[in-house]
């Protein structure tokens, strides 16, 4: 709604508007092409589109990046928790072994 990209405020003129009055007077056909104004307008258009696409792409990259890094972050949290549990389990095993030896030795 309030885009940061500069916008065209007036409609682009059509090509024949600039070309028509110059035609056929001295036997020369005017080169049908784009007058400077149109070219400038076209360039502005292109720049605008480019800026919009670039901005969109950067937004997309950010959005996708954040989404998947969130998932990865959560996965890392899970891994950390899992390894903590593994350590806990090792401690439990050691404790059981210790007790097993004690029981063999007699209380």
């Amino acid at each position: 709604m309030n885009p940061t990209i500069p916008t065209l405020t007036k409609a682009p003129p059509t090509a024949d508007q600039g070309a028509a009055p110059a035609a056929a007077e001295d036997g020369y056909e005017a080169v049908t092409g784009l007058d400077k104004e149109t070219v400038a307008l076209k360039r502005t258009y292109e720049a605008e589109v480019e800026a919009k696409v670039a901005s969109d792409y950067s937004h997309i990259v950010w959005a996708y990046g954040i989404l998947w890094s969130l998932f990865c972050g959560f996965a890392i949290v899970l891994l950390v928790r899992g390894s903590r549990q593994q350590r806990d389990l090792q401690a439990l095993r050691r404790e059981l072994e210790r007790r097993g030896e004690q029981a063999v030795d007699g209380p």
Partner: peptide
Amino acid sequence: VGPDMLGDDV
């Protein structure tokens, strides 16, 4: 009680 009770959850 024992490590194996944790089964394949670990």
